[in-house]
Design a protein around this nucleic acid. Structure first.
Lengths: 114, 114
DNA sequence: TCGATATGTCATCATCCCTCGACAGATCAG
DNA sequence: CTGATCTGTCGAGGGATGATGACATATCGA
């Protein structure tokens, strides 16, 4: 089993990590700022979560002095969208009305998890 | 509103459950047929996974005699798409080219984690 | 140089969960 | 009714994982 495949889904399984991703959606943040926004966990826990997100390719790191700024990496998004498209390809009409997206052409792309 | 936020992401974290969802994308299946397609786990494990998927609202159940046919429920898909849209709203161009979808309008509000 | 700041890593502990066998309930065939 | 089939649930066991404090590394300021 390809170890790379499930890393993204494993990373998204934790609510703190999803909270980190939503915080980074507003732009890059230093680790300290992230730890302040994520409630209920300490700084080292946030650091561990950032490691998981980095392993999954969901975030990228930029070093500047003592700080490390994290930001969203759009690369694995296609894996998520691809999986949703594969599972829900027969229900795209309802997806459109709920999420505000429309199919570009009649045929659908595949290749998501392997 | 969605009663539980993280159930969908937790359900997607397990590779066997993702395999089940992909099998159901072809149409409804009985539990026995699902257990035959999912490699590496026994029947009771598949039954447990189906319970998790049912709790998360990802699948629906239809009873017919001794059989129970499971099929994809498109309802929680909007939660997945909504989360992806929130996290990657600044990278939608790359998403379009990778997944074959296009935004319908400029704005799109949704709640992902609750 | 020395201290403060910012962050990662490690060991530990508690908890969660995946997996399985055994059993139970329901339904069909004879 | 009797047996076979289909599926869910329960309890146990083993491995994975999240949270934390102590420590290490690197950088900035005086």
């Amino acid at each position: 089993m390809a170890p790379q495949g499930g890393l993204v889904f494993d990373a998204l399984a934790d609510p703190s990590r999803r909270e980190i991703l939503l915080a980074l959606a507003d732009g890059e943040l230093a680790v300290g700022d992230i730890a302040e926004r994520v409630q209920g966990v300490g700084r080292t826990t946030v650091s561990s979560h950032l490691r998981v997100l980095r392993m999954a390719g969901l975030v990228t790191e930029r070093r500047e002095g003592r700080f490390r700024f994290y930001s969203i990496d759009p690369t694995p998004a296609s894996q998520l969208v691809g999986f949703v498209a594969q599972v829900y390809r027969d229900s795209l009409d309802e997806l459109r009305s709920d999420a505000g997206v429309a199919p570009r052409s009649a045929e659908g792309r595949s290749s998501a998890t392997g």
